[in-house]
Design a protein around this nucleic acid. Structure first.
Lengths: 342, 342
DNA sequence: GTGAAAGCGCTAACAC
DNA sequence: GTGTTAGCGCTTTCAC
């Protein structure tokens, strides 16, 4: 029997999907016993369990997770809020997060806040309304109002890609100030005298740029800054580089707020006959998957985006299951990968 | 009054979040009137509405969308299944989809099927269990079993990035066969005699490659194919190019299954002193945001990923709201953007 | 090990 | 316009 799956008996009230009641009737048990097979199979006798599993197969029953969530107030859902999904920066993090959640039986619901953070409040309502077991803020800057709502919601939160001093709850990230200063140091140590910056306008990039400039200032060096849009693009990098190369005092080193921008800077410099790294050193940020393969290979700031995603995922799952996560604050640090462009 | 939001009165049973009952009590109305303000505000007298809205503010009430979903069997949730989120190919589509849904009050839940499509069935259960109003399959190949389950679930489905002849429900895409043949034509017309292919192993890329080869065959030309991993990387492109350039009959044109691979091929060729486009023409696929900016600018197959996402979103929303979408099958076509690399 | 009964938070039907 | 009643599909006591 059971040639095809799909609804067998008469159509049911709403949607026509099979319910615990249908399965229970077919298996000759009470509805809650079906629930038990799904959630605590060890509490059910083997014979009964088999009969019920067979009934599940025959009816094509797929548990209604919404209903389960209402009753148990455990939604098995985690929300991630990103500025936009189409910047390459956070992809590894989202991927690793999804996989980690998945492995633990959780689903990811994705919200785009945009780089301007308008609509942030509406988005938050939509998300909190789903009663997720946790919320991951990935590279998002949030308003005071959002903070308050998140705090009030009691939902576990992980903020990532930064190390706030006043976190809402948990944090996985690194210091953008340290990063900027470290890159400045690195370039000056290599004997560069006229460092410049090409940076997107987003909050974190700004802080790296400022820290870079401050570190240079300490050595009595003024840094030129060129702004470009967020998220960073190759074209934006080329334009900014063109402006920089046209100046009277041409920089001999450029720190870019993303690898894509850095590739643009290298491309433009090459097009102008400026040799990278001899006349111009270029440092990127993000260590995207193409950065090692281009010519010259890009020196860049490496961040373990996957690790951020995994940690975020397991911290949220821990909390969702009532465990205390190993740490509430993780500094994943960064590293400068020296390659051909410097 | 109402200095801060957040729960006011005594803690409530589960989770501590305010419910319709709390709001109703505070506003002196019945619970369903609160529900009405949320869902059909025009049915409620202005005075009552204001009182309720004030009560909502004071209590910090956020509607439990899970409960709403169970009762109304409308979850305001759409699921998207992608092979992996970290390939750049589908990002614009996911972004446009998210935005379109968002504008209509729907949220996106994201599932990664992986390129191998294992775990596909488990993923599908998790997704169908949420009773989403629609499912978008973005660049995913699905098993016969998955097809059956989707069909049985009665949930509106849009398959994208391809034009299946036997769609589950709706389709937004283009023909990979036509694409492959068109690129072949394009290269032969430009006088290339020894075309080759560097392609990832994913299903669609394979079909483009085969169609390319078949078109060449018709003109009596044999095509060399080099395989690389999926998703395509710059490094993979370089390796494949190195192998191709080492052969006795060196190709004078290479069609790549992604722009990232193409950039790798160009890089490797340049490193070998092979001039692009004079000695070697290179065509990419996807028109990623960097492709126009590199040197030489990449000739590539352009696809409007955003449009695919928007269309998918509005088709699903239409169906979710009981409307018939304008079309069930949309061919978004492709175009070959001729730039410096050919 | 299993069943009966209650109830999660919400919304749809039907009164008035 | 608004309240009363019922019930979505599930899980959680609490019996036995």
């Amino acid at each position: 029997m059971a040639k095809a799956s799909g609804p067998k008996k008469r159509a049911r009230r709403s949607g026509g999907a099979a319910t615990v009641v249908d399965v229970a009737r077919l298996a000759g048990v009470a509805p809650n016993t079906v629930s038990r097979v799904l959630n605590h199979p060890e509490q059910v006798a083997e014979g009964t369990r088999e009969r019920i599993n067979e009934a599940i197969r025959v009816t094509g029953y797929t548990p209604n997770l919404l209903a389960a969530g209402v009753r148990s107030s455990r939604s098995k859902l985690v929300a991630a809020i990103v500025p936009t999904v189409s910047g390459p920066m956070f992809l590894e993090t989202i991927q690793a997060l999804t996989e980690t959640l998945d492995r633990n039986g959780y689903q990811l619901i994705l919200g785009q806040a945009g780089y301007d953070g308008l609509r942030e409040d509406e988005l938050l309502s939509a998300i909190i309304g789903r009663r997720p077991a946790g919320i991951a803020l990935i590279g998002v800057v949030h308003s005071a109002e959002s903070r308050r709502r998140l705090l009030a919601s009691q939902i576990p939160v992980v903020e990532t890609w930064d190390l706030t001093t006043t976190p809402i709850d948990m944090v996985v990230g690194f210091s953008h100030e340290e990063t900027g200063a470290a890159v400045c140091d690195f370039l000056l140590r290599k004997g560069r005298k006229r460092p410049a910056i090409v940076t997107g306008r987003d909050e974190r990039a700004k802080r790296r740029a400022l820290a870079f400039a401050a570190a240079a200032q300490k050595q009595g060096i003024e840094v030129q800054i060129e702004w470009t849009g967020a998220p960073g693009t190759l074209a934006g990098g080329r334009e900014a580089a063109a402006r920089l190369l046209a100046r009277d005092t041409r920089p001999d080193a450029i720190f870019c707020s993303s690898d894509l921008i850095a590739l643009g800077v290298v491309t433009e410099a090459t097009a102008h006959g400026v040799s990278v790294p001899y006349e111009l050193a270029v440092v990127g940020f993000g260590d995207l998957n193409f950065s090692e393969g281009v010519i010259p290979p890009l020196t860049t700031v490496h961040l373990d985006g996957s690790r951020i995603g995994e940690l975020t995922g397991s911290m949220l799952v821990d909390r969702a299951e009532g465990r205390q996560p190993a740490q509430k604050r993780v500094d994943v640090t960064f590293s400068i990968l020296e390659r051909g462009s410097t």
